[in-house]
Design a binder for these strands. Structure first.
Lengths: 357, 357
DNA sequence: TGTGTGGAGTTAAGCGCATAAATTCGCACC
DNA sequence: GGTGCGAATTTATGCGCTTAACTCCACACA
């Protein structure tokens, strides 16, 4: 692995200046065919591969778009000790293939992002870090022409900061008065439709909301939930029934309700992941879904179609969100204006967990 | 979007030299706390974000690992005209969520790659291009400290070329006498086990292989298939029953066999994707699986667990392969030797498509 | 007072490429 | 033979950062 060849090496071997070498690769028409061939041959012999860093520095942009995920999605993995290869393989082959861990909604957005970037001839840089780790996203921001990011913890000001130098899109975050671009869905309409279904169609009266309000989108869903209950003339709760985080000691309120025999008619969960956890808890305590209690999710991830019963949920256009982010970033970097906020539609997906089918 | 602040700007504002600014971020212990605070404050005010390109150039490495996929996996998307946002969203929400397109095996390897890179504090650069496009992977190679790649078309020499400057890992490619690192699975043992099951357990005699031999791993599987049949005293075919490419006019041999009423007992498909297509064709022609004909796949992708019947297949440790690639790349870049080839184990997964269950 | 020492900061030299501006050259044309 | 011109190539500079080597200075010690 000798140190890589540079333009200088190629130029010397081809008997031309480095400018000609550069031209040969970037603006071939400016170089006489014979000279070009000379340069290409030299490059071939030397195994020349242009340095992306040097090019990026010289041109002022990298042709790369960044996607940053806080590790909130995979904390367990990040903290795990490095397993031996054997252990990794054995665990993977012996364990169950788990659709609950992958693909999640992040992965679907990422996929759309990748596909569109590919279409546009851009490379994608994937970064990640701890929730509080400012440096991770800053580092990434310094290497790309645009950055898309998932909502994490207290990163708002950090993003504004980063956004001064590079366009930034934030997913699943309702319109706000900041300098970032937002992509989200019509949470209000979606929740309204969901509640209408549970109350209007199935006649449930005791309908509750489960979810942690920290994420901006989930807050919006809860407020929409309150409004929807009100619209149906039902009592409006001040807070979610359970504000779980899906960590160790989660779903406490739900388990207490089960223990005391006062389970609501319907559990509206802020996300599919949460809904699946709820299904588990209910099953473990001998409660049948939907006979004893209805459950709904939000997102439309794959695992929700594999569960028993299948999940009634709201499908989000994740791939489109990822694609849209790419378009916004590229356009904005090129000076083309874009609306600061996009609110995409959703679709109610009726499964078995609400009592239908 | 004013042009980004640089070390010079920060240095000037803080009244220090650019070296001190750099030290503040890279080796904080070398600068006095008060000075450090001065610099950080200046950086904060200016919205300073270090340039990844400049750093990469100065240090000679980028802390990024590359993953390159030829577009053979997504040709349709690449060639599609750019749809309007509305059209994209509508198509996504209205269409069926299709586990047959995602996640595929590439995605699972990629996931392992990403997770391990994250663990190691590296960023991942995703590139892609047309099969014949040398420039794509070369460009990517120039921007990363190591490159992992899927087997595509005639890229062998290209990879050797790229491999001169940067460590390269190639997936699903049996050990070869080249300068690259290879990661694959024990195709021979896996196919042997599969055939043993079909012949020994289910008593099938007319067992055929379907698959395109271009991919190196698939070639290995077919040779193992031949050997396995021979070991059972069955006639050994010269060629696969069908060498389909899953494009427009695919599975011709199979359809002809169906038309002529001479369908084999068991169809051993080179991949799950192919097996799923085979299931479709069989169903469309009124043939029942496994009653009329047995089918097996290879890979263990998610869609194979969603099909009816579920697929009997061979599960590969994809995530581990991705993780291993990262370890190889990082180690090799650091001068630590690694075996040139890794051959990982697999696991036979019995579904319903072979006649079990 | 002279010397040594270590800490804090600065100087200066690249890293590999792109590109504007300058130069060279061949050639047509008067 | 002089002039003009466009094409081909080179010169020269800068992109923003890292870091080895150096300077400076305060302080301890003999």
């Amino acid at each position: 692995m000798a140190s890589r060849a540079t333009v200088y090496d190629v130029a010397e071997r081809a008997g031309v200046s480095i400018a000609t070498v550069s031209h040969t690769f970037r603006q071939p028409q400016k170089v006489r065919p014979e000279t070009r061939e000379l340069v290409l041959e030299a490059a071939r012999v030397l195994g020349y591969v242009p340095s992306g860093s040097a090019r990026g520095l010289a041109k002022g942009r990298s042709q790369a778009l960044g996607l940053y995920a806080f590790d909130m999605f995979l904390p367990s993995d990040l903290n795990a000790p490095p397993a031996s290869l054997d252990a990794l393989v054995r665990r993977e082959l012996d364990g169950p293939a788990d659709a609950r861990r992958f693909p999640l909604y992040v992965d679907e957005i990422q996929r759309g992002f990748e596909l569109e970037a590919r279409r546009m001839g851009r490379t994608v840089m994937l970064g990640s870090g701890a929730s509080r780790d400012a440096l991770g996203s800053i580092d990434l921001a310094g290497s790309v022409d645009g950055l898309a990011i998932f909502p994490g913890g207290a990163e708002r000001d950090l993003l504004e900061y980063v956004g001064r130098g590079v366009p930034v899109v934030i997913f699943s975050s309702p319109p706000m008065d900041d300098t970032l671009h937002h992509i989200t869905v019509a949470n209000e309409a979606a929740v309204r439709e969901l509640v209408d279904h549970l109350v209007g169609r199935h006649g449930h009266r005791s309908v509750v909301f489960l979810g942690e309000l920290a994420a901006p989108d989930i807050g919006a869903r809860f407020r929409a939930f309150q409004a929807a209950l009100g619209a149906h003339g039902l009592p409006v709760p001040e807070e979610p029934f359970d504000t779980t985080t899906l960590t160790a000691d989660s779903l406490r309120s739900l388990r207490e309700a089960i223990a005391s025999g006062r389970v609501p008619d319907a559990l509206v969960c802020a996300t599919d992941q949460l809904a699946l956890a709820v299904l588990d808890v209910l099953a473990r305590h001998g409660l049948r879904v939907p006979e004893d209690v209805a459950v709904t999710g939000f997102d439309g991830i794959l695992a929700g179609r594999l569960s028993r019963p299948t999940l009634t949920t709201v499908r989000q256009p994740f791939a489109s969100m990822g694609r849209l982010a790419v378009r916004i970033l590229i356009d904005t970097a090129a000076g083309v204006e874009h609306p600061r906020s996009y609110v995409l539609p959703t679709r109610l997906v009726i499964g078995a967990s609400c009592g239908c089918g």
